[in-house]
Every structure is written in C-alpha cells, then in structure tokens.
Design a binder for these strands. Structure first.
Lengths: 100, 100
DNA sequence: CATCATAATATCGAAATTCGATATCGGATT
DNA sequence: AATCCGATATCGAATTTCGATATTATGATG
C-alpha cells in the first residue's frame, strides 16, 4: 500500500530536475536513488513517456559516450504544474511537519 | 495526469489527522476541501477501508446527531508510516522549495 | 409502528495505472 | 558483420482509481 504514497513525489522530483537541467532516464534513476527511491527502468520510462505525451516535458536525442540518450526538459506547462505542486508541498509541510 | 500527483498527499493528510484526533469520512472530505482537495465519497471511503485493512487505522462506531459514524484513528503502524512520510516530505521540501 | 427524510457509508466497474521482467535498439569496437 | 553494452522500450497481470449509484441506519413525523 504505502509504496504508491510516493508516486507523486517521484513525479515532482522528475519535474523539478527537468526544470533545472536536461535529464535522461538513467540520470533520473540515479538521482532518485540519491533521494531514497529505488525505481526500475520499467517504472521510469513509462513515466517519462506519459509526461512527454502530456506536454510537461520535451525531449531530444543526444549521443553521449557512444550511447543514445533521450534528454528531457520541462515545458512551460510542466513548470506551471511544478509551481502548483510547490503550493501543495508547502501546505503539506506546514500541516504535517510544522505542527508535529 | 496531474490529478494523481496528489494521491499520496491526500493519504498523508488523512494519516496526519487520524494521528491528531478521531476522524470519519465526512470530516475528512471537509478537511481535505480546506486544503484544496475535492474528493468524493467514492474516493475517500475506499481509501479508509484500505488503510484500515492495512492496519494503519483502527475504527469504531459512534452515533452522532442520530447518525452512525465510523471514526478512525492511526495505529502505531500508521504513525510509523507517517513518520517515514515526514522524512520524504522534508526531503522534497528541501529540494523543490528551498532551491527554487 | 410504518414511513419518510437524510446523513453517512458502501459498492460498482470501466478505465487507467503500476512496475518487475523482459526485449529491443543503436553506436562503438574489433 | 558480429558482438558488446548502455540506454530505452514494451509487456501485461495485478492493482488502483473515483464518479456514479446504492444502501444503511437513525430520528422524526403522522
């Protein structure tokens, strides 16, 4: 049950990083691991595809070290969704952390 | 897509309130509305049942104003899950809010 | 004591999502 | 052109989602 407590968290992390810099699937898996989330390729790629399809992320190909990578960046719409998410995070924080 | 960004947030709010006081479905719908989340009965009751079944919440009946209410409180396990969630929230906050 | 009104909860079920497992792709090296 | 391997794509059974709808339980009414 409590696995999917954090699905939204993961998406927000992705959106945030895609705002700061261009990211690819492998980068994100590593980045999320740093945050304590272990996500497999079968998890992250469908997320990226969905967010791309929903116009929250754009993508372009690059060759790095002889390997093809698909880099993603947040679109204006993606940034907008992130901004809304920030409000929700602040509120959750105020309620659950500051009142503890 | 972005509706289910906040599913986890809603569950955490529920868990938090169930730690502070006893809550019933109707209370939660009102409380979540206060936080900007509009959830219907068809959404909240399955959530409560699931969390109850997963031993994060206990329940007991009460008659209030001639109506039966099922009140929920967080179990020790539920409080534990909330505690873990707090860590994740802090981390998300540090990353997404403080670095903005 | 039936019946109604209503607050609160329960259930349904088609559609969407989840994610580990597995397959595929594409460039480099030899 | 064969092979390797980092990176991405796909599969699909199981689970989740949530608006719509039904049911329940209690007090009030006649």
């Amino acid at each position: 049950m409590m696995k999917n407590l954090y699905n939204g968290f993961i998406r927000i992390h992705v959106l945030y990083h895609a705002t700061e810099e261009q990211i690819c699937g492998i980068d994100i898996i590593r980045e999320l691991k740093r945050h304590g989330y272990t996500v497999s390729p079968g998890t992250i790629y469908p997320i990226l595809h969905k967010m791309n399809q929903d116009r929250l992320l754009t993508n372009h190909n690059e060759i790095v070290n002889g390997k093809r990578r698909i880099y993603y960046r947040a679109t204006p719409q993606g940034k907008n969704v992130l901004e809304q998410a920030r409000e929700k995070i602040k509120e959750l924080y105020d309620e659950v952390i500051l009142n503890e």
